[in-house]
Design a protein around this nucleic acid. Structure first.
Lengths: 132, 132
DNA sequence: CAAGTGTATATAAACAATATACACAGTAGT
DNA sequence: ACTACTGTGTATATTGTTTATATACACTTG
């Protein structure tokens, strides 16, 4: 039961999702922070603990942490550890919002490429929303 | 002025767009077909002519053509050439529409990841549309 | 100085792009 | 008919970039 007790086991990446592992880990951690389940100042698992718990390499965890540090969500201190930043929740939400904006921009570009009218694009989106 | 006279020069890929060259070429050709500027049955430039005209390798053109053939937009005949399929226009439009749908699905997933409400997502899209 | 932390270097696998050599289809000359 | 040529698409081996890894290194604290 040792691996089952790892508190971040639910963040484990999967090749089936198509995204790089480091990206999946960063996304999952960002969501935890944005939801307020990780308080500012609290310590994250060390590179080794996280790597072992998520069954990935140490470097992959490092890249995920680097991405979050660039966004201002966490900060690292050599020899000490990695911690949730003070303004982490706002930074995480801003980063998540930027991701949505980028995805929407890509969708808009695809629609333009397809010669699709604005109204048709909006209709397609609302249709997808109601289809759930 | 020899390279300037190449009729498909406008389809030349650019590294600045971020997408693979073969994808850019396939997208551009698909748009030409969808717009009706390439009639069914007409011949496309040979791999070599296209590669020389777009300043890419022969293999890159091959991959672009392969993508379009899988969509049913064109068909290849060894030793003869590559031609626009009969149902090319409908196939191109369907493929373009599928691309929009995929991009919208990704945007929706990002919105869910960000905890964004449906109405907020729609509002963000309409805002982007009116901002142009 | 010992145990824990983050950091950096060298390596393997997958993808994008290339150059080069190969195989097929039509056609002009004989 | 036949052959060889020219043009077409096809396949193989190579290079550079990205993702992911294992291993060794450097920093901080008790």
């Amino acid at each position: 039961m040792s691996s089952e007790s790892f508190p971040f086991a639910a963040l484990a990446p999967s090749a089936a999702r198509g995204l790089p592992f480091y990206r999946q880990i960063a996304d999952a951690l960002r969501r935890e922070v944005a939801a307020g389940r990780l308080a500012p100042g609290s310590a994250l698992p060390s590179f080794r603990d996280m790597a072992e718990g998520l069954l990935v390499s140490l470097i992959t965890v490092k890249r995920a942490y680097e991405e979050l540090e660039q966004e201002g969500v966490i900060y690292r201190h050599q020899g000490v550890g990695t911690f949730v930043a003070e303004a982490a929740r706002a930074a995480a939400r801003e980063a998540a919002r930027a991701a949505v904006d980028g995805a929407l921009t890509a969708a808009l570009a695809a629609a333009r490429e397809a010669g699709m009218a604005d109204a048709e694009l909006v209709a397609l989106l609302t249709q997808k929303l109601s289809a759930e």
